[in-house]
């Protein structure tokens, strides 16, 4: 059911992705605030098929030189490319005091046993400002291989960015800043260098009182 409805290919599928802040020492859900969240653990045939976006519409929002989105897309495979529009939830009641933990967790699944490399590039005006590269090994569970990046600490740049964003008095000002803030995640098979998933993230601030929202698109080139 997930094919065409969520982020994934027959080789690797995103199960969950979240960025959060949490009061340390009390890791229960009540003290955790989710800035963004994708959960694809229960795909259904009733879910809508993904709409598509022409990848050329967003080239300049991501690195354009060597290893940039254009070069990655031309190399393919095209079915591994997705765009996520996040409406981030900045409406947290957790006090930003020392000891608060900022983290990112994600989980992938695959029918294959691989070692994967996950690169996350934070970009400002399309230029990379920080990159984190993580390597994950498979764990066999319930008939498939799971890759779990659990509570990876958020980098200082992102924490400061969130702080500054929250200080802006109006949502339109936050959205104006977010127009030039993007993240590109590339997951590759470490041993073969095959590209498994490429996810481009763009942002607005949520106006909902029900937490973070998102739309997922396939990236195409017609």
């Amino acid at each position: 059911a997930w094919q065409g409805r969520s982020i994934g290919t027959p080789k690797l599928r995103l199960v969950e992705f979240l960025a959060f802040m949490e009061q340390q020492g009390e890791p229960d859900a009540y003290n955790k605030h989710l800035y963004v969240h994708i959960s694809q653990s229960n795909p259904s045939y009733s879910d809508a098929l993904l709409e598509s976006v022409d990848v050329r519409q967003i080239y300049d929002k991501f690195p354009e030189k060597k290893g940039g989105l254009k070069e990655l897309y031309e190399k393919g495979p095209p079915n591994a490319f997705f765009l996520v529009k996040f409406w981030a939830d900045l409406n947290t009641s957790i006090q930003d005091e020392p000891g608060v933990f900022y983290g990112v967790s994600s989980q992938y699944e695959s029918p294959e046993n691989m070692t994967i490399t996950c690169s996350s590039k934070v970009c400002s005006f399309g230029k990379q400002v920080v990159e984190k590269v993580e390597t994950e090994y498979a764990r066999f569970e319930n008939g498939r291989f799971l890759y779990r990046i659990h509570r990876s600490p958020m980098c200082e740049y992102l924490i400061n960015f969130i702080h500054k964003l929250k200080q802006l008095p109006e949502k339109y000002m936050m959205n104006s800043v977010l127009e030039n803030f993007t993240i590109l995640q590339v997951v590759t098979n470490r041993d073969t260098q095959e590209l498994l998933l490429c996810i481009a993230y763009v942002f607005e601030v949520s106006t909902s009182e029900h937490g973070a929202q998102h739309h997922i698109y396939r990236l195409v080139k017609d």
Partner: peptide
């Protein structure tokens, strides 16, 4: 933004790109 950048609103993007989903 940079002067050579086209605002996102002026690009060819699906209408849903500007509609925050309602929580399910």
């Amino acid at each position: 933004g940079r002067p050579d950048q086209v605002p996102m609103r002026k690009r060819h993007l699906p209408a849903s790109f500007w509609e925050e989903p309602r929580p399910s």
